[in-house]
């Protein structure tokens, strides 16, 4: 079937197999490989992107469901300068292996839109759908706090 999705400000349109997941459309059809697949149960959050400004796990929706909507991935976040969340992750050492980072950053962008100054407990609770196996989360929480201030 044909899907038309605005991705990172560019309208994309492709014929895809009906069962194509949004994450595979982004990665395989468009070649936007920042968004990662870490599980097959919607548990890990590595594939988190923004769909019409809200964070979604792109492995849980079909590309067809995103047709006619607007998607932002990590690649589309920075303008001429880093997004404040990207900057905070860099300054606060919020990445180690980096595999969770793209999804984590998109989840944080969504969180800060809903709650611009979350406290540490709110941050931890809001990120429970995004797993990181390397950092123990502390520097990520630091980064979110910094980005929110």
């Amino acid at each position: 079937m044909k899907v038309t999705i605005e991705v990172n400000g560019t309208v994309t349109s492709h014929d895809v197999e009906d069962r194509t997941l949004l994450v595979h459309y982004l990665r395989d059809t468009l070649g936007l490989t920042a968004t990662n697949v870490g599980c097959d149960t919607s548990a890990c959050g590595a594939c988190t992107v923004l769909l019409d400004g809200e964070s979604v796990k792109s492995c849980t929706i079909l590309a067809a469901q995103a047709s006619g909507h607007m998607v932002v991935t990590l690649e589309g976040l920075a303008g001429s300068e880093l997004h404040p969340v990207q900057r905070a992750f860099r300054e606060r050492h919020g990445s180690q292996c980096g595999f969770c980072t793209p999804g984590m950053i998109m989840a944080v962008v969504s969180l800060l839109r809903d709650n611009p100054k979350p406290d540490r407990d709110e941050i931890r609770l809001a990120l429970k759908g995004n797993l990181c196996r390397c950092t123990g989360y502390q520097n990520i929480v630091d980064a979110v706090e910094a980005a929110g201030s």
Partner: peptide, 22 residues
């Protein structure tokens, strides 16, 4: 000091085996 690894990780994502487009 920011890690030198991080620029790619926070902008375009790392280049893991699934991302290799050789």
């Amino acid at each position: 000091m920011a890690r030198i690894e991080d620029w790619a990780l926070i902008t375009s994502g790392g280049r893991y085996v699934e991302d290799v487009r050789d």
